[in-house]
Design a protein around this nucleic acid. Structure first.
Length: 273
DNA sequence: CGCCATGTTAGAGG
DNA sequence: TCCTCTAACATGGC
């Protein structure tokens, strides 16, 4: 389910009911997902009120009176209110609130994580810049692009930029007409502004459309109908009509238009930049 | 059965 | 030291 737009959509839904409520109980049917441990998290959060619900990168952040409860959805996690979740299979954890509401963490693959941190700011410094925040300036991106790494793995690195995942990285690179294998440090200064705008516009558009629903894991989004390259291998590029191809970059399935996104030289198409 | 999957991380090797 | 790749996590869909 989760990249920045899907997490943001989730956070906005939680904000309508969660702030101000007290956490009365916390349980997990799959304890390994709770860190540092179910007992420690339960004793840290039960009895605390939720001050606010925020997003940082791909993390859902429940700010408490003391510390914060962080939820990472990983591949298939969802946060759903018990009164509008028809299925109770795959519920791995549940928060019970003072008002009687129950919030379920639903996660078939059990990759998701729930963590309590006593010092949220200390945790947050290890996360990369927020691409939709003020600080994501052309200068900031220019600095990031000095790295001797290929563009896609760099943009996916959560310690560099927080929130981009496989879908929106492919989409942003397509919009910027940059090949995912191109070394970041080879991006021309004139293209930095284009890439910045590509990243921001695709994320904003995806939030506006409730995120992308590409399989059972995340229902309700509409952005999947507006994706130009992701999941569209073999179909025509909406810009030039050439057939979109799927390659592998950094172990991830990667979608590019061979016409719009000029590949780097043959040497760089192999491993190692 | 084999391959794929919106994520992250440890370990190996260059 | 930095970068890249693979495997692993655990499950479901095609």
């Amino acid at each position: 389910m989760p990249e920045l737009p899907e997490v943001e959509t989730t956070v906005r839904a939680l904000r309508r009911r969660l702030p101000g409520q007290e956490l009365r109980e916390f349980d997990a049917s799959w304890p390994p997902m709770v860190l540092p441990s179910l007992a420690e998290v339960r004793s840290a959060i039960v009895g605390q009120r939720v001050a606010s619900v925020d997003r940082r990168g791909k993390f859902v952040v429940l700010r408490l009176q003391t510390g914060a409860c962080l939820v990472h959805l990983r591949m298939t996690g969802r946060l759903v209110w018990s009164d509008n979740s028809p299925s109770v299979t795959h519920v791995r954890a549940t928060w019970t609130l003072s008002g009687g509401d129950r919030l379920h963490f639903h996660d078939p693959r059990k990759f998701g994580r729930i963590r309590f941190v006593s010092d949220y700011d200390e945790f947050a410094v290890q996360l990369g810049i927020e691409p939709l925040a003020r600080g994501f300036t052309m200068d900031a991106l220019q600095q990031i692009l000095r790295a001797k790494r290929r563009l896609k793995p760099l943009l996916l690195d959560q310690t560099v930029i927080g929130g981009l995942g496989n879908i929106y990285t492919d989409e942003a690179l397509f919009r910027a007409r940059l090949h995912p294998l191109r070394p970041a440090c080879h991006v021309k200064p004139a293209q930095v502004a284009t890439l910045r705008e590509a990243i921001r516009s695709v994320l904003r558009e995806a939030i506006r459309h409730g995120g992308s629903s590409i399989d059972w894991a995340y229902p309700g989004g509409r952005m999947q109908n507006r994706l130009a390259v992701y999941g569209r291998a073999g179909q025509p590029c909406p810009r030039c009509g050439r057939t979109i191809v799927r390659i592998r970059v950094g172990g991830r399935g990667t979608h590019v238009c061979p016409c719009c996104q000029k590949a780097p030289g043959p040497r760089l198409m192999q491993r190692g930049v």
